[in-house]
Amino acid sequence: MKITKDEVVYTADLARLDLSENSINRFADQIGDILEYVDTLNSVDTEGITPTSHAIFLSNAFREDEVKESMGADKALANAPEKEDGNFIVPKVINL
């Protein structure tokens, strides 16, 4: 098994996902198959090869530091599931 059920649960927790027992079993099998396939990469000699994260040559994209109009609170909050007085509402974070 390339990935254990415990590792699936641990990784899901890092990604803030709650998996049912059924999903854990399925994902362990399916992700295991995928990782096994991904292991074919180990047959490639990559010693000294620079990794690529960006396919096009571009140096830093700088711009002038000019003040421009921004979206504004009303628009930024327009899709908020819960809001009040120009703020996003979240469940209580610190319990005193």
Partner: peptide, 18 residues
């Protein structure tokens, strides 16, 4: 928090995210 669906049943932040 910012947009989209939220499960409003959950009372703690982490539980709500999950």
């Amino acid at each position: 928090v910012k947009y989209g669906f939220r499960d409003k049943e959950k009372n703690s932040l982490i539980d709500m995210y999950r």
